[in-house]
Design a protein around this nucleic acid. Structure first.
Lengths: 245, 245
DNA sequence: CGGGAAGTTGACGGGTCTCAATGGCCGTGG
DNA sequence: CCACGGCCATTGAGACCCGTCAACTTCCCG
């Protein structure tokens, strides 16, 4: 039933070339941290809001997103998570998770015990540095989202999101021809961009009518990336050579 | 001319009790990292957008903010910085700073050489852990701002910002009676909340007319914090016992 | 073939933006 | 001492972007 967990040194993510190299000792240590793998179904919670979790996760395959809700149900998606992303770092060690994480597709997760993070810091400063790098990098992505939601028009926001997700998917080897998978509903886009569902739909249709993008079979293709980038005032954050834990 | 740099073990911030303790060895090491102190005038840049900096800073006194701009001049404030905050961590080690930092008041900064960060990770895992904690904590603040800008009404946003800054100022010992300093113009509030200047003004006046807050002499007082918290759906992020580098 | 989730479109109202003008405060210089 | 300019706060009027309500369609899956 449960597929065998893959060994870290044969982790399929490492074969992509998108991540920085580690020494054999480091990979061996990461292996010792690994407590197992779990699969989660599309739509299920990975971390519930206000819950306490004792594990860290690395996303091995599939898509997920991190979000926070207000009491009356309004929801803001903070960022989307793709393979290679580390989940759960932002939580206060002592407290509850202030945000939730939910799977968009079926997902496979690598489990690490949070309390062994300390061993990692003590014995492998290089890996500790990587963890910090990942935290800082994720903050940059949230920064970018904040600029988008705070200062861009609806059209610019949608263009921004499409480019951003396309490039991220591409960077982890998900592109097939001109297409990348796009397992995201318009409701998710609306929740990520601070727009209403209806206006998100109109804006998407508008961009499609301009010939900028195309959806088919839950896949996305950017027909005119240059125009779209100009429209969104997109500025690429380099993601190449990021670490993988 | 240049006031003498204070020794880390006598750092006035540590006397506040708001920060976690460090061992004498750790403080000694932090001292060895410290390259000096500089003062910056109100309104001046601490880090320019798209520039390369070789230093990290800890804010010793004064207020600042972190921001990003779009090409046409629209500006988004990402978060406000108060004494004890570490500045410059989010930058990619290799690249340019994707954001700017500007002083709101006259400011004193503690300087650290970025390239010695590696020594810190190698020799002082406890401090490395603290650095990671600070990065994760700052991401939580940006998360909160993203929820505010994405999903709260103008009234809720302004209430949120006033409460948030009041509590943060209080937590670093800036409260005098019921008042905390508030060196922020309405333009800054607008840029932080994704609102126009005019609408920010109207909203502030509205809250004042409801008897929720009061400004005087660039100071802020919350007359009715309970109502304001309910209005904003405020949820406190515990900031007690955070580390100081 | 039925039902629910996701997408699409129209109509309408309102929250927020833009443009514009005014007044207060303060530092500067005549 | 006062005139002046600049920054900041304030207020009105009108326009528009976007939200809400509602209906309908399409797609998918059982």
């Amino acid at each position: 039933m449960k597929p065998a967990a893959v060994e870290c040194k044969h982790c399929p993510l490492r074969a992509l070339g998108a991540f920085s190299e580690n020494t054999p000792e480091e990979i061996c240590f990461i292996q010792s941290l690994k407590r197992g793998e779990i699969g989660i179904a599309a739509g299920a919670a990975i971390i519930a809001e206000q819950s306490r979790t004792s594990d860290l996760f690395t996303l091995l395959s599939g898509w997920a997103f991190r979000f926070r809700s207000l009491r009356d149900g309004r929801r803001q998606i903070l960022n989307f998570l793709l393979p290679g992303d580390l989940i759960g770092l932002q939580e206060q060690l002592t407290g509850d998770s202030p945000y939730g994480v939910e799977a968009l597709t079926a997902v496979r997760l690598c489990l690490f015990q949070r309390n062994r993070l300390w061993d990692l810091f003590r014995h492998h400063p290089g890996l500790a540095y990587d963890v910090t790098w990942l935290a800082a990098h994720e903050e940059l992505i949230v920064d970018e989202n904040l600029v988008t939601v705070g200062r861009r028009s609806a059209q610019e926001r949608v263009a921004m999101l499409l480019i951003h997700l396309f490039k991220r998917a591409e960077s982890v080897g998900l592109k097939r021809g001109d297409w990348v998978p796009f397992p995201i509903t318009q409701q998710h886009i609306a929740d990520a961009l601070g727009l209403s569902l209806v206006h998100t739909n109109r804006t998407l249709r508008g961009l499609a009518r301009l010939g900028l993008h195309e959806f088919s079979n839950n896949q996305l293709r950017l027909i005119n990336p240059a125009t779209m980038q100009r429209l969104a005032d997109y500025y690429a954050v380099p993601t190449h050579g990021r670490p993988l834990i």
